[in-house]
Amino acid sequence: MIRVGKHIVQDLMRNRFILAYTGLLLVLSVSMFSLDSDPGKATLSLLNLVLLVVPLVSIIFTTIYFFNSYEFIELLLSQPINRKVVFFSEVVALSAALGMAFMIGVGLPLLILNPGGATGYMILAGLLLTWVFVSLAFVAALSTRDKAKGIGLTLLFWFYFELIYDGFLLYIIYAFSDYPLEKVTLALTALNPVDLARILILLKLDISALMGYTGAFYQNFFGSSQGVLVVGVLLILWAVAPVLLAWRKFSRKDI
């Protein structure tokens, strides 16, 4: 596993994209904090970077990389190497590379320029979202043999989790606004990793609003470290479950 992973990571590093992505994140996050005199505003810009850009890049890059490394995978699979090892090495290597890019591009400057505040949760959310979308990318890439279709599917995933699902959720809240929906709403956000990551950051950024007049339920959930734990565990599940689904597909896939 380590041996195979090492070669995939080496291959990823030969691909300039990871380097460019790291650089882009670094430039964006540093400029946000040095150009904007108000750290609060910079934090909000960064929030959108973490919630929008990071998932988009993670899912598209992973899908494209997977399609492009088809030959490499074929080469590996014709060698005496376990299919499982090849697959999970791909997952781990991509998660590690993109996670590293995020940590260097966003995590490090954030820790240096703006320690405290929502920084810790922001990094945690960004890292977990990276992994979730890498994971989703494998599902997309293994759902079709056609690269264009695969990329289309990843964009659909991204769009769904960023916008469509929230629209649906808002509709539910609106349609059933006469009922006590706190628990249902909270449960429904668990079905969207972007919502989970966003809530993780909200727990720090908007705790005053979250705990204001929305009932004791939110207060109990958000006011405790238990809330953070639950959200964190759910996000990890979101990173793991699609990988397992993708593995089922990959284990039966004809190369």
Binding site: D11, R14, N15, S69, E71, F72, E74, L75, S78, Q79, P80, I81, N82, R83
Partner: peptide, 21 residues
């Protein structure tokens, strides 16, 4: 199983390798 592939040398129809390698 995969161990048996130690015994096989394979030359595919279209030789493709990772481009940047």
């Amino acid at each position: 199983h995969w161990h048996y592939r130690e015994k096989i040398g394979y030359m595919p129809q279209f030789a493709t390798f990772p481009n940047h390698l």
